[in-house]
Simulated scan of single mutants.
Amino acid sequence: MTEKLSPKIDSKIQPNFEKIAFDLESTLNGVVTLKASTSEQAFTASVLGTERQGYGVHIIDSGLILTIGYLVAEAEQIWITTNSGQVIEGHALAYDYETGFGLVQCLGELDAPTIPLGNSNLIKANDDVIVAGAGGKATAITAKIAARAEFAGYWEYVIENAIFSAPSHPNWGGAALLNNAGEVCGIGSLFVNKIESDAMQREGNMIVPVELLDERLQELKLYGQTLSSPRPWLGMFASQIDQDFEIVGLYNNGPAALGGLETGDVILEINNIKSHSLANFFRNIWNIGPAGCEVPMKIMRNGSVSETTILSVDRRDLWKKPQFH
């Protein structure tokens, strides 16, 4: 999830400035490069690594940058590079686990224009968009919206109306999805090798829509987190196999690992409920109660079925907390 930035994009899919209704060159200068580092002792280091690089979008002229959260999770140092060549330090202001967004505050005056937030609810299948990294036209592509659909990630993550774009941007992490008015409507999160809800099942990117920020941005700016009750978190990675769910990975010292679950275990039921999709599987966990609740489950290990209960936690208690003013 923290890919190294690749070489330049094929000029054939770069945007044609003459066909764009807004000032694309100026707008692209609002996308910056982020380089973040954390220590090997960070809770997420074993999964996300200690050195991460991607993009962010300057959305408020106080130096507030919107990015994808995994780039800056537990970051101890962040450097921001603008298209003008300015290099300036920032700090991780917030990581919203439910949406996946991260916020970075620039520690000084940023030499980059702001890009306004658009109405991502208006983005629909077959719309023309631009997906852009930092570096101007050379790191931007023209794309189509392949689908709007629910997305479930194996790391205990679900969003209801994700944006899927195609073709894929090779450096997707934190890239800006721009509408035809030059507004940012989403932030790049993942490469998807087959978009299931797309009739052509193309490869592309999963983009987190900015509509998810509507009721969260102010709290994230003020407190570094939302004030709603946190979801229960087990620290496991799950993959659907038919109507069951296999544990394909575990956070070291996370609740699932400490509770005795192992990679390869198959979870048959959550709280006596069979799940029908990965999204439903995670929601069945979240529906039990807030973080700290016990999560009963039936598992199969090496052909033997047993029952166990895992004590969930608020992941914010385990991860290094973002700084905030």
Rank of each mutant, 00 (worst) to 15 (best):
N193V: 09
V266Y: 08
P230H: 04
G259H: 11
N205H: 10
A291N: 09
E219Y: 11
N179A: 03
R202W: 08
G264V: 05
E211K: 00
A256M: 08
H276V: 14
N205K: 05
M236S: 14
L212S: 02
N284Y: 10
N280M: 08
P290F: 05
N180M: 14
Y251C: 08
S239D: 15
F281Q: 08
N280G: 08
E211H: 02
P290M: 04
M200C: 09
E219G: 07
K274F: 09
E219A: 00
L213F: 00
G254Q: 05
D242M: 11
Y251R: 03
I288Q: 03
A238L: 13
S197D: 11
M200R: 11
R283P: 10
E246P: 06
N253F: 07
I270S: 01
S275C: 02
N287F: 15
Q243R: 07
N271S: 10
E196T: 12
I267N: 11
S275V: 00
N193H: 10
S275P: 03
L234Y: 03
I267F: 06
E211Q: 07
I288E: 03
K221Q: 13
I273D: 05
L268Y: 15
L220P: 00
G289Y: 01
Y251H: 02
L261T: 10
N179P: 05
I187A: 07
S275T: 00
D198Q: 09
P209G: 01
E215Y: 04
E183C: 01
E246I: 15
V208R: 01
Q218S: 12
G186Q: 07
W286K: 02
G186S: 08
K221G: 11
V266T: 13
I267T: 12
E219K: 04
E262L: 15
P255W: 07
I267E: 11
T226E: 02
N252Q: 12
